[in-house]
Amino acid sequence: ALGQLVPDSDAPIDITGNSLEIVDDVATWIGDVRAVQGEAILTADKLVAILDDEGGFSSIRAIGAVRYANGKEAITGETALYDAEARAITITDNVVVTQGRTVMRGGALVYWLDTGRIAFTAPDGKRIRGIFYTKSLDASL
């Protein structure tokens, strides 16, 4: 499978950064790294991609100040791993998900690109916290 940021898109993936080092099939971007595909944007301090032998990526690991946004939700954390086979992004360490005005905090999060489903796990010894806004009563009366 091909590493992508949005499901089943042929839009090109643009990755920019201050430097890029490629050793065999490992490509490492360092410094203001930004990967964009269609509406999805993944930014981080460092990004390590395993190049498959067809010119795409089989996995992408983002490290440091990770932020993934796709126009609907935005997810931040310290590290993220995109697995092309599972077509899912796993984000860990200080994870915050923002959907509109809804905010949720947790230890680790798995986000399935194809379905948009999110699985949150609490950090050790803590609980998942979230702020949800219901439509205000007066607006509906």
Partner: peptide, 10 residues
């Protein structure tokens, strides 16, 4: 190693 305004399009 590529340095300075590195951009790659796949």
């Amino acid at each position: 190693v590529f340095e300075g305004n590195v951009s790659m399009r796949i």
